[in-house]
Computed example of a mutant assay.
Amino acid sequence: MINETIKNAIQENSEEMVAIRRKLHSEPELSWEEYETSQFVFNYLTELGIECRKTEPTGVIGTLKGGKEGKTVALRADMDALSVEELNVDLPYKSVTSGKMHACGHDAHTSMLLAAAKALVGVKDQLPGSVRFIFQPAEEVATGAKAMVEQGAVEGVDDVFGIHIWSQIPSHSVACNPGPSFASADIFKVHFKGRGGHGAIPQNSIDAAIIASSFVMNVQSVVSRTIDPQQPAVVTVGKMVVGTRFNIIAENAEIEGTVRCFDAETRDHIEKQLKVYADNTAEIFGGTATVEYIRGTQAVINGEESSELVRQVAAEAFGENVVYDEKPTMGGEDFSFYLDEVPGSFALVGSGNAEKDTQWAHHHGKFNVDEEAMATGAELYAQYAWAYLNK
């Protein structure tokens, strides 16, 4: 199942891969702004002799056709950075742009997939099929994958595989359990309307602050009292804007939050209940409520055959001890839009190493990657493609 030529190529090109990652890390670009990054990727693939095209506005799709007929497997990496101030002050390759940072590992994903592409070119003649390389923008705003799908990223693809560097599990470990992996991630916004007035004369007003506060406290019972406790779900209110002055009773209140779950029926139920709770809470106090519910990513559900193949590849390539059982996360990932179209799976490659200070949570200003673990990710990409096409 494991191709030794691929393994050797990854090791031989590991320094170049790390250098590319450091370049990308120092030059972060936000979602839908990945112009320099995508041009670098396009040029690199073109120099490898891989047929590639750009998608609008900042994606890249490459296709490596093997020497034999067969299926097509797609490998995906995301490229965008975050609006985060980097706190790694002594890092020689820290972000050169204030307020922008690769705080989630997408710089590593892009570098690993480029290294995998280079390794697969070396076994091109023996490949029974084709490998599609998807370099995706705008994962952080959950719209990039959908746009790539709409522009043909998985047309003719039989299986899709993605990787996320994961600082919360030990370096070099590989986790890819069948079933739920990442939760669906939705946004809700609620506007409560009351009647403003003087803070000393509350009887003549309808206090939007009271309405909003009551909603925030009561809405948690949607999860705790209306959903099967064996169906995980999270409702989080992350933002509340209410009032204008210390002695004025608020007329308006704005609330924003997120809903995370793995089950479609649970998702539908929570959406309906948020409106019920908002309307009823507002009515109690004499106000009104308007609810906007925005569906984001679907839940990432790993296919059984694909995830089992990942685990087999990891065990054969790196040893049984690297295969790691990680619990599903309530984090969101727009890789789900690819899995809506074709079978596949999404793996986590460990990068957590306290000795190297790479155990920080994703999206934190001190997030960093154990660069030695990138070789594991790059080889997993390439060996998975080889194993899938040869199975």
Rank of each mutant, 00 (worst) to 15 (best):
Asn88Phe: 10
Ile284Trp: 05
Phe135Gln: 01
Phe318Val: 08
Val89Leu: 13
Lys7Phe: 14
Val89Pro: 15
Ser130Asp: 15
Phe133Gly: 08
Gly365Glu: 06
Ala116Gln: 02
Glu371Pro: 08
Ile169Met: 15
Phe192Tyr: 11
Val121Gln: 05
Val322Pro: 04
Met374Tyr: 13
Val342Phe: 09
Glu69Phe: 05
Ile210Met: 09
Thr244Met: 15
Ala373Val: 05
Gly287Ser: 09
Ala74Leu: 07
Val300Arg: 00
Met79His: 01
Lys356Asn: 15
Thr266Phe: 01
Thr258Val: 06
Ser171Lys: 06
Gly197Asp: 07
Gln312Asn: 14
Val216Met: 08
Lys100His: 05
Thr97Leu: 14
Gly350Arg: 07
Lys193Leu: 12
Lys118Leu: 09
Gly144Trp: 00
Phe285Asn: 03
Ser184Lys: 00
Val160Arg: 00
His363Gly: 04
Met330Ala: 12
Ala282Trp: 02
Ile2Arg: 00
Ser111Gly: 05
Cys176Trp: 06
Pro128Ile: 00
Glu265Asp: 12
Gly122Ser: 13
Gly377Trp: 06
Ala74Glu: 06
Val369Trp: 01
Gln273Trp: 12
Gly99Asn: 05
Gly59Val: 07
Lys7His: 11
Glu34Asn: 12
Gly286Pro: 01
Thr329Phe: 07
Glu29Asp: 15
Arg53His: 14
Gly162Cys: 12
Val234His: 07
Tyr44Glu: 08
Asp263Tyr: 00
Gly365Arg: 05
Gln359Asp: 15
Ala81Asn: 13
Thr290Ser: 10
Thr143Cys: 13
Val18Gln: 05
Ala142Thr: 10
Thr288Ser: 15
Asn321Met: 12
Leu45Glu: 02
Phe346His: 04
Pro229Leu: 13
Lys94Glu: 05
Ile255Val: 11
Ser184Ile: 02
Glu85Arg: 13
Lys54Leu: 11
Ser167Met: 08
Pro57Gln: 13
Phe285Tyr: 11
Pro28Gln: 13
Val349Lys: 02
Ile201Thr: 12
Lys100Val: 03
Asp263Trp: 07
Thr281Asp: 04
Met101Lys: 06
Ala375Gln: 08
Ala9Leu: 12
Lys391Thr: 14
Leu91Met: 14
Thr236Cys: 09
Cys261Asp: 02
Cys176Glu: 07
Ala117Arg: 00
Ala119Asn: 03
Val222His: 00
Val259Leu: 03
Arg260Pro: 04
Ser213Gln: 10
Ile270Val: 07
Asp186Phe: 02
Asn368Leu: 06
Arg195Ile: 11
Thr281Arg: 03
Ala354Gly: 10
Val276Phe: 11
Phe246Tyr: 14
Asp80His: 01
Glu316Ser: 04
Val342Asn: 07
Ala138Asn: 05
Ser173Tyr: 14
Val237Arg: 03
Ala373Trp: 00
Ser98Trp: 14
Glu316Asp: 10
Ile61Arg: 02
Ala81Met: 10
Ala116Trp: 00
Ala387Ser: 12
